[in-house]
Amino acid sequence: MNTCDLCDRHEAMLRVLALPLRDFGGRLAFQGTVSTVSAFEDNSRVREAVAEPGLGRVLVVDGGGSLRRAMLGDMLAEKAVENGWSGVIVHGAIRDSAAIGQLALGVKALATCPMKTEKLGRGERDVVLAIGGVVVRPGDWLCADGDGVVIADHALA
């Protein structure tokens, strides 16, 4: 599946994430049901999420767009692969980009930053996010590739 074809066929049903995301993962194209995290400069909830069975889901992390601390690094990305996550999208920064690029995981983020986050247990999981000009809800379906990210209320063929 690719995002351009989906937009051509299902334009009225799609929301396009309007963020300048870069590809960092070893998989450029990925899709799945959405799970969300909202947290600012604390990746405790990201750690919790990727430690659970991913079942092919995509984790969408709203890090508030912060580029001062990385919400995902190689250890959490490895855990996501081990547990069957399809991808992670970060409205913020990641680190360990070279290692993440070797993993069978889709990863899109705004940028990289070598600084890790604090681990204070802050943030929320499976909440509605408003990022990139769209609403992203837990249970939505997301498809990502080199052309962008599209979101629908349910899986599309």
Results as ranks from 00 to 15, higher is better:
residue 1 M to W: 14
residue 2 N to K: 14
residue 3 T to Q: 12
residue 4 C to G: 02
residue 4 C to M: 13
residue 7 C to P: 00
residue 9 R to I: 12
residue 13 M to Q: 15
residue 14 L to P: 04
residue 15 R to M: 11
residue 15 R to Y: 13
residue 16 V to N: 00
residue 16 V to L: 13
residue 17 L to H: 00
residue 20 P to E: 07
residue 20 P to W: 14
residue 22 R to K: 15
residue 23 D to Q: 14
residue 24 F to E: 04
residue 26 G to A: 08
residue 27 R to W: 15
residue 28 L to S: 06
residue 31 Q to M: 07
residue 34 V to K: 00
residue 35 S to Y: 08
residue 36 T to Q: 07
residue 37 V to K: 01
residue 40 F to K: 03
residue 45 R to A: 11
residue 45 R to D: 05
residue 48 E to M: 11
residue 48 E to P: 01
residue 52 E to W: 07
residue 53 P to I: 09
residue 55 L to N: 12
residue 59 L to R: 02
residue 60 V to Y: 04
residue 60 V to E: 08
residue 61 V to N: 00
residue 64 G to R: 07
residue 66 S to C: 05
residue 68 R to C: 12
residue 69 R to D: 03
residue 69 R to A: 15
residue 70 A to I: 05
residue 72 L to V: 15
residue 74 D to E: 13
residue 77 A to P: 07
residue 77 A to I: 07
residue 78 E to V: 03
residue 78 E to D: 10
residue 81 V to H: 09
residue 82 E to H: 10
residue 83 N to F: 11
residue 89 I to D: 08
residue 90 V to W: 13
residue 90 V to K: 02
residue 95 R to L: 02
residue 95 R to V: 01
residue 99 A to Y: 08
residue 100 I to G: 05
residue 101 G to H: 07
residue 105 L to G: 06
residue 106 G to N: 03
residue 107 V to I: 04
residue 110 L to N: 05
residue 111 A to I: 00
residue 113 C to E: 07
residue 114 P to G: 02
residue 116 K to G: 00
residue 116 K to M: 06
residue 117 T to E: 09
residue 118 E to Y: 14
residue 118 E to I: 14
residue 124 E to R: 11
residue 125 R to H: 02
residue 129 L to T: 01
residue 131 I to R: 00
residue 132 G to E: 05
residue 132 G to Q: 06
residue 132 G to A: 03
residue 135 V to D: 10
residue 135 V to Y: 09
residue 136 V to N: 00
residue 137 R to T: 10
residue 138 P to T: 08
residue 140 D to N: 10
residue 140 D to V: 05
residue 140 D to Q: 04
residue 141 W to P: 01
residue 141 W to D: 03
residue 143 C to A: 14
residue 144 A to R: 06
residue 150 V to I: 12
residue 156 L to V: 06
